[in-house]
Amino acid sequence: MATNANTIIRNGLWKNNQALVALLGLCPLLAVSNTVINSLGLGIATTLTLVLSNGLVSSLRSYILPEIRLPLFVLMIAGIVTIIELTMSAWFYQLYLTLGIFIPLIVTNCAIIGRAEVFASKNRILPSLLDGLAMGLGFSFALLLLGAFRELLGAGTLFSQADLLFGESAKNWQINIFDDYSGILLALLPPGAFIALGLLIALKNAFATQ
């Protein structure tokens, strides 16, 4: 069993990257990656959910009978996501207004149940937490690349609307790469997400085979 910390991190970030290799969680990945800030928001929320669900599944793994494990995973993940959503809307309302729509999407991310099944239900709690973190960061990394690519091509900017995530002081973080750029609309629309993801996977494979 791969419980070695190095292996876990390498798997999460690169070798078994949930978005680029396992191709899990494509629904939120493609829907939300139209700007860097949106990607970052979903990345943070997904990583948090992955760490918590891995931790919970791992700490309860001796009570989870094999034949009922899937319904229990679903129950736990849905519970965690709902609690995160409620907590955010109570104490981080501005952030919730931006990320709120993505949080229910996290439930549809099969990477989370995938990690619960493949890793957390068979490993001790610390390696499971680390696995959740590494997988979450790997997913966020792919999200950010997609977001940057699409925002750059689609709108010619980076970090637009950063104030949604970082407050009023971030209003002027927006970087305009090209002046007077009309934008390739395709990049912002769903087909653009598929094309960009395809390119990203090809790029990753090119690196990996070298």
Binding site: L75, M76, G79, T82, I83, L86, T87
Partner: peptide, 12 residues
């Protein structure tokens, strides 16, 4: 789990 969701709901 439903209990903890319920408690969170009430607290928030």
């Amino acid at each position: 789990i439903v209990g903890s969701v319920f408690l969170t709901f009430h607290a928030t």
